[in-house]
Design a protein around this nucleic acid. Sequence first.
DNA 1: TTGAAAGCGCTAACAC
DNA 2: GTGTTAGCGCTTTCAA
Lengths: 339, 339
Amino acid sequence: MKPHPASISDIAKALGVAPSTVSRALRDHPDISPATRNRVKEFAARVNYRPNALALGLKHQRSMTIGIVIPELVHFFFSSVLSGIEEVAYSKGYRVMICQSADDLKREALNVQALLDHQVDGMLISISKSTVEYGHLFRIVDREIPVVFFDRVCDEIDSDRVLTDDFEAARAITSHLLQGSRKRILHLAAPQHLAIGRERYHGYLRALQDHEADTADELVIHCDTPDKVRELREHILNLAPSIDGVFAVNDITAITAMHLLQDAGYAVPEQIGIAGFGDDPISGMIRPGLTTVEQKGYDMGKSAVTMLLERLELPEKEVPSRLEVFPATLKIRDSSRKP
Amino acid sequence: MKPHPASISDIAKALGVAPSTVSRALRDHPDISPATRNRVKEFAARVNYRPNALALGLKHQRSMTIGIVIPELVHFFFSSVLSGIEEVAYSKGYRVMICQSADDLKREALNVQALLDHQVDGMLISISKSTVEYGHLFRIVDREIPVVFFDRVCDEIDSDRVLTDDFEAARAITSHLLQGSRKRILHLAAPQHLAIGRERYHGYLRALQDHEADTADELVIHCDTPDKVRELREHILNLAPSIDGVFAVNDITAITAMHLLQDAGYAVPEQIGIAGFGDDPISGMIRPGLTTVEQKGYDMGKSAVTMLLERLELPEKEVPSRLEVFPATLKIRDSSRKP
DNA sequence: TTGAAAGCGCTAACAC
DNA sequence: GTGTTAGCGCTTTCAA
């Protein structure tokens, strides 16, 4: 049988005092005499006493745990956000429970429910690509559990958000692609029901308008993963002769497209300039380096938990929803050099 | 104030029955009459009843939560292991608590303690680079909490492990580098107090011996991160004229070294062949592609949780510690083509 | 300064 | 077939 870790009442029995006395002694309650306090503390240290977080959570209605739901752990952006979250959360005594939705609405809903069941004190969420229905998210606010959305936010819910200035970033990087003689930029876009998809598309569009470039619809295709690039291979190669630039909604898609075009004989950046989004470390390591938008995942993560923890620390205060927008910084590399 | 979610006793009161009846009805206890069972279930569904995982955990001494401690979330290998873990754990009704040690012994120890405090049912651990003292790990086995170590295992503790066949992988890839006329291979090694460091070094050494290549000590340097490569820049460049191959303990280090050498005018693979370890996605995307060893992180993760869950499901059974070794598969790419 | 008792939400042994 | 009670580990009134 398991060596039961010492509980408060074990200590109380051993010392011939009441559990409440032990409890008070351990948390330095002023009423307790120094003598008993020391006696309790010493004994507790000797038997390696540790408070049971489950019991504490049940008692205080506060689990000191925050729930996180993201699409995919293995993407650099998300793992760096997570890293930032974990860093801050731990330093403040919170633990994190992490779930992946795998970009699936049903799993996202199950994850949210599981986290609610575990009585998380708050949640940090980046919604899945297939999240077109928000019942599970409303359930969180119904229970008045604070949520902060990051990157892939849910516009239908009034809550704190942390995001990148997607519109401006997309506008700036498309504008940069158009600096030379380029006129026809292919946009590999994210689903338009996601705010990031819309914002980046509209930023792209604005840049085209500003430069009086070609805004043909055929230049925008829904394609946001390497797999999609391979699937749309023929389609992209058919367009290739008529384009001189590509702006993809993320880096790995941009790189996959770049390789596709290079393998088909196009010179990058001479014939076609390429730009991505996110500044995945890979982008600085390939040759030519991929021009992209820096997205400070780690800092966004820290910022998102910080917002959340503030709400947790002062639950009464009716603070209106806050929006934090991280400015976009272009990372210009060789893939977009002027033609 | 918060809208308190319905509890079993709330339901009991509303329906005029005892809490135990509600509890039994909800879990389909045979004693309960179909009539009351339905009445309870319907009402529970209507008020959106959900069991409180904290209370359950406290009651059953079983939190349905597993703790994970890894060095760094943002490394592809670890995030893919995690992804595999999460996948299986969730499907079996377990949640995961994740901590990063940041390769720091003290943080690792704090993390382990925090997870114990949270009454995790088991742990999955990959130890930090600076873990040279194991008190915190022994505390886990003292409490008879099952642990599975993966990749960076702790030899001093008798427990389940999941790892790559590091020795054989290192031997094979070094041997591959030596196929042509290569004779002097630089090894960028991990710390030797880590089993993976030792195994990969010894595999490298064995290959050198098999091929009667140069086994000079100066050809082995402790260098396992891009930062270390930059720090040891001069040292590596001094060695460069005399070497014709590099085997690094991980891919990003290999790539950083490759770029360093290329920038200094060395041709890869013509003058110097390069190989890494881990098959980070980046390795297939750079040109020349990096020759490396496939490390099935996702599968290792699944395998590790599966072992752990087996122990959790049959705690009495005295199963001896198991060791699962994933075979090494070489990924030969252009960075190591025969000279 | 300390103790006794109740309760957080849930279940299980024991009544009836 | 259902209710009563105790208890998981902890804190917190209230009483002494």
